[in-house]
Design a protein around this nucleic acid. Structure first.
Lengths: 98, 98
DNA sequence: AGGCTATGTAAGCAACTTCTTACACTCTAG
DNA sequence: CTAGAGTGTAAGAAGTTGCTTACATAGCCT
């Protein structure tokens, strides 16, 4: 979970995830979407995402295709849900006490 | 969202959130739970959490009481859900195509 | 083979994080 | 009022992150 949450904490990486969310994208296609930063920078972000299990990589000849891997967020989602549920529980208690 | 996700990316801060999840805790009570690190370190983590809107602070005489503020995770939860839903959508499509 | 395309890796630097110790502040209690 | 408890803030060290440029690797095409 730690790795996934640290990966997701970066806005560029979240943007990449939004992009690959709709289907596979090559490293180059992704890099093109970030004209303000160098291609290697994007490549490094992709590595972080892959290491965190947030994207899948597939070789396609010359290119590398990246796709979202939502399971990688399972534990993070669990944590957030656990925090979130507190609100619901509290709300319920508040309602019951009035 | 950025601030919340960066705050949550740290394991100590997540642990703090788990602790205040069940109700208010004073700074000192929280610091006691992290014997391996200094009290000021915990205090600094609490500040990060408060700045990110993930905890509420209340002064109680000499002490400061911290409580979880789950709304602070709303945007983060939204992001994760948006990624997550992809899986469901894909699954649905896969089922429909077979 | 040789050159071009697509991509990753290495090295290094600047900025940021997360600690620590030392200090300041603010209530409460006697 | 003074002492001590509870807590935040300041300054600085050490480690980590996120970039850049330069280089390496691997597949494709003529």
């Amino acid at each position: 979970m730690d790795e996934a949450l640290r990966a997701v904490a970066d806005p560029t990486r979240r943007a990449i995830m939004e992009l690959v969310r709709d289907g596979e994208r090559s490293a180059g296609q992704l890099a093109d979407r970030f004209p303000q930063m160098s291609r290697p920078a994007v490549s490094q972000h992709l590595r972080v995402l892959a290491d965190a299990g947030l994207v899948d990589v597939r070789r396609d000849g010359n290119r590398r295709m990246y796709a979202l891997r939502p399971q990688g967020l399972a534990d993070a989602a669990g944590f957030i849900e656990r925090m979130w549920s507190t609100q619901l529980r509290r709300l319920k208690e508040a309602v019951e006490n009035e």
